[in-house]
Design a protein around this nucleic acid. Structure first.
Lengths: 231, 231
DNA sequence: CTCTGGAAAATTTGATCATATTCTTGGCGG
DNA sequence: CCGCCAAGAATATGATCAAATTTTCCAGAG
């Protein structure tokens, strides 16, 4: 009597699957992570709702998540904005990442499959291409993807989440730094890292991860020292 | 001419100041932190809205924050629940807390004022009273307050937030452990910690914090090993 | 005759929006 | 210079739609 096939015909909305607040969260998160929203810039819920052409309820939920993750902070009583890092903040982040990156790098090396190494090598090549092309956005995305994949390989979800969350804090500043000094002469310990992973040298991989992190963080710290001296 | 006192009379709503989603977040957070919501127990948004006699929007926002903090996880597609820890999870938490607690303890010792030491001693006495009385809830609250005050003294907001967030993960399990073995013969390195802080022995304070953490975590690990062996 | 398995309907739950209410803030007038 | 008023933004409620789970009912097999 009724057509059961009708449902499949009238259902091209498989793309609607992820809820709106999730989509908005992801978009805002990426925009913060890759520095498209400048540190210190104020955001309003209604402004975001208009800009992303969404209702304000999903925007509110996305903002709650991001403030809980430290990617946004309450400014005064009513507004939120991307926080501006201080030199002390960077020292804390360096201290935490020292432990996190080296440990995750070590575990990832112990667990890496050949397929994973192939994929990591591909990502690193994309990073190289972005550096040569001076493509800032692609560099930042690729660099993050490289570390994120290592976190994933490490099979330590809690530590990986802690590491990911720190990216949200220094990401905006990283963008400013790289945008200032250009994508040339960037530190890249990724080659060392890959070589250690291929040979199973987990201690060396931990050292490479730590050094790669340190070089990037030192650049941010130098910039912050300069701008704080200006005041 | 006009009565300025009138304002105070017509304004008994000073308690309305914190927004509802903030209040709900805090209540839920405490209930999770002190194990009043059992690990694995499913929660629904509407159920919570009824139980806390609130609208569902503030409840939704509170749940977003708590899931972002790892205090809740999505269960399937529809429900959220307090996560159950695995033995691997505990190992990760131990690794992270090893350097977090010791570093925060060291910094707190360097910055502690006499007034702060007095307050810490008071908190520790309250913990002792709770242990003697077998008052589980007061013990958990006091123990947390002791560590939270040290985090606060350390003046390292990012690291302190990381440490606080880990409490949300092992808090529910801690409640189960202590509820099982009783509040007697609990580890208490708080006395060592206070003595080191008084004498300015920051290295010793770091060691005391680490050992206090380790003793508590080992108890949780032992329980998890047992229950996983049961399966 | 009873038990089990599956399908469909109904109820419960979640997501989003529109709207009202409250609170902050900035400007204007005394 | 202070206080009041207005505009705008955020919070919170209720309604509405969509989705999922549960329950119920029926059929077939033991």
């Amino acid at each position: 009597m009724d057509e059961p096939a009708l449902k499949m015909i009238t259902q091209p909305d498989a793309a609607t699957n992820p809820p709106a607040h999730e989509v908005i969260y992801r978009r805002l998160r990426d925009q913060i992570l890759f520095g498209e929203i400048a540190p210190g810039q104020a955001l309003t819920i209604q402004g975001l709702a208009d800009r992303l052409s969404a209702g304000m309820t999903p925007v509110r939920e996305a903002i709650r998540r991001l403030t809980a993750e430290g990617a946004l902070v309450f400014q005064g009583n009513r507004r939120v904005c991307v926080p501006e890092l201080t030199a002390e903040n960077i020292s804390e982040i360096i201290y935490a990442r020292q432990w996190l990156e080296s440990h995750l790098g070590l575990r990832a090396t112990e667990r890496a499959t050949p397929a994973a190494l192939t994929r990591l090598t591909e990502i690193d090549r994309a990073v190289d291409r972005a550096i040569l092309a001076g493509d800032l956005r692609s560099y930042l995305q690729g660099n993050h993807a490289f570390h994120a994949m290592i976190y994933d390989l490490a099979d330590a979800p809690i530590l990986a989440e802690m590491a990911e969350r720190l990216w949200l804090r220094f990401g905006p500043s990283l963008r400013v730094v790289i945008g200032r000094i250009g994508t040339q002469n960037l530190p890249d310990k990724h080659k060392d890292m890959l070589e250690c992973m291929r040979t199973g040298d987990s201690e060396g991989a931990a050292r490479a991860m730590r050094e790669d992190m340190l070089q990037g963080m030192e650049q941010i710290r130098d910039m912050l020292d300069l701008s704080e001296r200006d005041n």
